[in-house]
């Protein structure tokens, strides 16, 4: 036990800003997608972890989807919706996202064995992150109630310098 505590204290002393770890997920076609490719465009991002059985997650992404045309008039950013549904519901999650129109405006990723979710230390969904253009996490929030999207927009405006 002593060694464990020693190890934790050593690790804690090495904290710097969290970033996006490199993990393999799937895109809507079923192809492998390296999460580090998210950084290639160099734009700030909203990364939202959701699942088909999580009602607040769906409400949050719907709210973002509805507000997106207005938000995009002010700042340039991307929305990445990461489904944490496992292989049982992954095919359904793809149809679900398409059936809500999200595919037009969001980058849809599917994390069927929750590797990305674990690497980002998301233990409950909904969980949303805002990153700058280099992938540095500048804001994160767990759970959603209507109105939380206002705070999210403020965070993305701040990272865009507005």
């Amino acid at each position: 036990m002593k060694r464990i505590i020693l190890m934790i204290s050593l690790l804690v002393s090495a904290i710097a800003s969290a970033q996006i770890p490199s993990v393999v997920v799937e895109n809507i076609k079923g192809e492998s997608y390296q999460t580090k490719s998210l950084l290639e465009e160099g734009t700030p991002m909203i990364i939202s972890f959701w699942s088909t059985s999580c009602k607040p997650c769906i409400r949050e992404l719907d709210a973002v989807y509805d507000a997106l045309p207005d938000w995009k008039e002010e700042v340039d950013f991307r929305v990445v919706a990461v489904s944490t549904d496992d292989s049982r519901l992954m095919a359904k999650a793809k149809s679900f996202a398409e059936g809500r129109g999200w595919g037009e405006d969001f980058l849809l990723l599917f994390d069927k064995n929750q590797d990305f979710m674990r690497a980002m230390n998301v233990s409950v969904v909904p969980h949303v992150f805002v990153t700058d253009g280099k992938g540095k996490i500048v804001y994160s929030h767990t759970s959603y109630v209507p109105g939380n999207e206002v705070e999210l927009f403020e965070a993305i405006k701040k990272v865009c310098g507005k």
Partner: peptide, 18 residues
Amino acid sequence: AMAAFADAQENKGYLTGS
């Protein structure tokens, strides 16, 4: 842990947890 710590001195990594 030691290796990570030694490395971190050179090039700070980051710690995340829940």
